[in-house]
Design a protein around this nucleic acid. Structure first.
Length: 562
DNA sequence: AGCCTATGGTGCC
DNA sequence: TGGCACCCCTAGGC
C-alpha cells in the first residue's frame, strides 16, 4: 500500500490548544475559506498601501473619518531605515536587507537567499546532489583516515514524524531536556521559570511539573548514576538541587547566593553541569568563570571553586568524556571551549583551548569513543574536531548553519546522536525559516558531521515556533524537542506506519496545561474522535519532512497569499 | 490586529 | 573596565 493511500486511514494526530485561547474551530474554518475567496476590500486596501500609499486618504474619507495625516507612506527598510528596498516577510519568505551581512554565514556582499552556504534553495527544495550522496569511494577514503568508523554504516532512520506532543506543557519556554536512563518513555524537561517536568510520553497524559525546585531557569539536568529516580539540576538561581522524581522532594546541594539578592552584579548563576560517575563528582559551572564540585556520594561541596574560563564570563557547558574519566570539556562566553585534566584542575592549566569567533553555546565529546568534539558557536558555525589526540589548533570542519543567538530563545546546541556508533549524525534546530508550501517553518536539522551534509530536515506544519532544544533518545529512534513552551516526541514515519498498536497510540490527543490559568486545569483528552474539540486543530498533512508534501497550515502560520 | 515586553551579548567609548 | 546603545526571521499576553 502506498503512502498516499495509507495516509487516509491513518489516525490523525490532534493537538489541543489551550482552552483559554479562544481560537475556536470556527475560526479555523474561516481561515480555510479565506484561501479560496478573492481578496476582500480591506485586503485590497492593504495591498494598495503597500504598493504606493496613495489610498490612505481615500480610505479614511470613505469611512467618514477625518484624515489624520495626509502624506505618502514612504517605503523604508525596517531593518536599516533606508529607502529603496524593503526587508521582512513577503508571505512566508523572508527578504533580507541587502545592507546587512548575510544572516546565515555573516559575510557581507550577499543575502541569505544567495548565500553559498545555503543548503536549502529554491523554496526549501534540496538539490539532490546534497542529499545522501554517499558513495563507496567516500567510505574507503574515510576508513583509511578514520579507522574507528565501522565497516558498515548502520542504516539510519530519522525520527521525522510527530508522534505525540504537549502543547504549552510549560508556562515558560523550554530550556533543557533529558531522557530517563532506564525508563524509555520518560522525558525530563526544564524551563525558564525553573520548573521541571516529568512526562511519560507513552501514556501521553501522564505528566508532572515540579515548580518548587528552582526559582529561575533550569540550565542543565542529569540523572544520578546510582539512583534512577534522582536528578541533579543546575539553575540560574545559583543552586544545584537533588530531586526525587517520585516524590518531588528536593534538597539543595549547592547554593551560590546564600545571602540572597545583593544586586545583579553579584548574583551567581549555574549553567554547565555534568557528572563524572567514575570519580563520583557532580560538576557545575557558574557565570563568573568558576567550576564547583560536589561529592556525588556524600553530596557535599568539595573545596574551593576553580577558575576555568575568563574571570567574570559565563561557563555554559560542561561535558565529561565517556571513555576517559580524566577528561573534562568546558565552554563558555569567553569564546573558548577548553579541555581539562581532572587531576590537574587549576586556572590556566587546561590541556587545550579551542578558539571560537563568538560565544560557544555547547561543546560535547562524541558519545562512543569520546575522541571527537562537537561545538555550537554563536557565529553560526558548528565545529568538529575529529580527534582530541590530533592537532587541535583548528577544527577539522566548520559547518555553516543558522542557529543565531537571540535573547528570547534558548541557545541552540548541536547534539550527537548517542546511538550512532559512527559518531557522525548530529541534530540541531534551525533558526532561519524556510518557505514550505506557503508556511514559514523552522526545521530541525540532521547533519552528517563528517561531511556537513544535511541528512534530513524535519518539521511539522503545526510547529510554527523555533525549536532550539533537541535531544535524541539513547536507545530508541526517538527525538524529543522543546519548542517555546511545548514538547514534541518524534518517531520515524516508516516505523509508525508498520505498527498498528503504535498507530493507535499516535491518536492520543494531547492537551495543554497552562499553570497560570485557573479553572482550566489540564484536561486529558481521550482518544475518542468525538471528544470536545473546542479550540483544537487537526494536523492533516502532518508530516512534511524531506520531500515536503502538502500541509495544512494553522492559523498562526505565516502564509503566502495566493 | 497591533502593541508591548522579557532582557543576552556585543561593540564602542 | 564599566556604562550604554543597539540588535534581522521571538512568543505570547493584553
Amino acid at each position: 500500500m502506498g503512502t498516499r493511500n495509507r495516509r487516509k486511514t491513518d489516525p490523525e494526530i490532534v493537538f489541543a490548544r489551550d482552552t483559554d485561547s479562544e481560537l475556536s474551530s470556527s475560526e479555523e474554518e474561516e481561515e480555510e475559506e479565506e484561501d479560496n475567496r478573492p481578496l476582500s476590500e480591506s485586503e485590497e486596501e492593504d495591498e494598495a498601501v503597500k504598493n504606493g500609499g496613495k489610498i490612505e486618504l481615500e480610505k479614511n474619507k470613505a469611512k467618514g473619518k477625518a484624515p489624520i495625516t495626509v502624506k505618502l507612506i514612504k517605503k523604508v527598510c525596517k531593518v536599516c531605515k533606508q529607502p529603496g528596498h524593503e526587508a521582512g516577510f513577503k508571505g512566508a519568505t523572508y527578504i533580507d536587507c541587502p545592507m546587512k551581512p548575510c544572516f546565515l554565514c555573516k559575510m557581507p556582499g550577499h543575502t541569505t537567499m544567495s548565500c553559498p552556504y545555503r543548503v536549502a534553495i529554491d523554496h526549501g527544495i534540496l538539490p539532490t546532489s546534497h542529499r545522501n550522496t554517499k558513495n563507496p569511494i567516500d567510505f574507503v577514503f574515510k576508513r583509511q583516515l578514520q579507522p574507528r568508523i565501522p565497516l558498515i554504516k548502520p542504516k539510519y532512520v530519522i525520527p521525522d514524524q510527530v508522534h505525540c506532543a504537549v502543547i504549552r506543557y510549560h508556562s515558560r519556554r523550554v530550556t533543557c531536556l533529558e531522557f530517563h536512563p532506564t525508563k524509555n518513555n520518560i522525558l525530563l524537561s526544564g524551563d525558564k521559570k525553573g520548573q521541571i517536568g516529568v512526562w511519560d510520553f507513552a501514556k501521553v497524559y501522564e505528566k508532572n511539573v515540579y515548580g518548587n525546585i528552582h526559582s529561575v531557569q533550569v540550565n542543565n539536568m542529569r540523572f544520578s548514576p546510582t539512583n534512577d529516580d534522582m536528578v541533579y539540576s543546575a539553575s540560574s538561581d545559583g543552586t544545584v538541587c537533588y530531586t526525587d522524581l517520585e516524590t518531588g522532594i528536593s534538597s539543595t546541594l549547592l547554593n551560590l547566593n546564600p545571602d540572597g539578592w545583593q544586586g545583579r552584579s553579584s548574583w551567581k548563576m549555574l549553567y554547565g553541569m555534568d557528572i563524572n560517575s567514575e570519580k563520583g563528582v557532580v560538576l557545575a559551572a557558574d557565570n563568573f568563570g568558576f567550576l564547583h564540585m560536589i561529592d556525588h556520594r556524600t553530596n557535599d561541596n568539595m573545596g574551593e571553586p576553580i577558575l576555568i574560563h575568563k574571570q567574570g564570563s559565563k561557563v555554559v557547558g560542561l561535558d565529561c568524556n565517556p571513555v576517559q574519566p580524566e577528561l573534562l570539556l568546558s565552554c563558555g562566553n569567553d569564546h573558548f571551549a577548553r579541555i581539562w585534566d581532572m587531576r590537574k584542575l587549576q586556572p590556566r592549566a587546561s590541556l587545550s583551548d579551542l578558539a571560537h569567533k563568538r560565544v560557544v553555546n555547547s561543546a560535547y565529546f562524541s558519545p562512543s569513543s569520546g575522541t571527537k568534539i562537537l561545538t555550537t558557536c554563536q557565529d553560526n558555525r558548528i565545529r568538529i574536531w575529529d580527534s582530541i589526540f590530533g592537532n587541535l589548533d583548528s577544527p577539522s570542519r566548520e559547518i555553516v548553519h543558522s542557529h543565531d543567538f537571540n535573547r528570547h530563545l534558548t541557545p541552540f546546541k548541536a547534539e550527537w546522536d548517542p546511538k550512532d556508533t559512527s559518531e557522525s549524525v548530529i541534530v540541531v534546530g534551525r533558526y532561519i525559516s524556510e518557505n514550505y508550501n506557503g508556511a514559514a517553518l523552522h526545521p530541525i536539522d540532521f547533519i552528517d558531521s563528517s561531511n556537513g551534509q544535511l541528512v534530513a530536515e524535519v518539521m511539522d506544519p503545526n510547529i510554527t515556533t523555533i525549536t532550539p532544544v533537541n535531544k535524541l533518545h539513547p536507545r530508541d529512534d526517538v527525538l524529543a524537542s522543546g519548542s517555546s513552551r511545548s514538547l514534541f516526541i518524534w518517531r520515524p514515519q516508516e516505523k509508525t506506519e508498520m505498527a498498528e498498536e503504535e498507530k493507535k497510540d499516535r491518536k492520543i490527543i494531547i492537551c495543554s496545561g497552562d499553570s497560570k490559568k485557573k479553572g482550566k486545569k489540564q484536561k486529558r483528552c481521550s482518544d475518542d474522535e468525538d471528544d470536545d474539540d473546542d479550540g483544537m486543530f487537526s494536523s492533516k498533512g502532518k508530516n512534511i519532512k524531506v520531500n515536503k508534501s502538502q500541509g495544512k497550515t494553522t492559523k498562526s502560520t505565516r502564509k503566502t497569499k495566493s
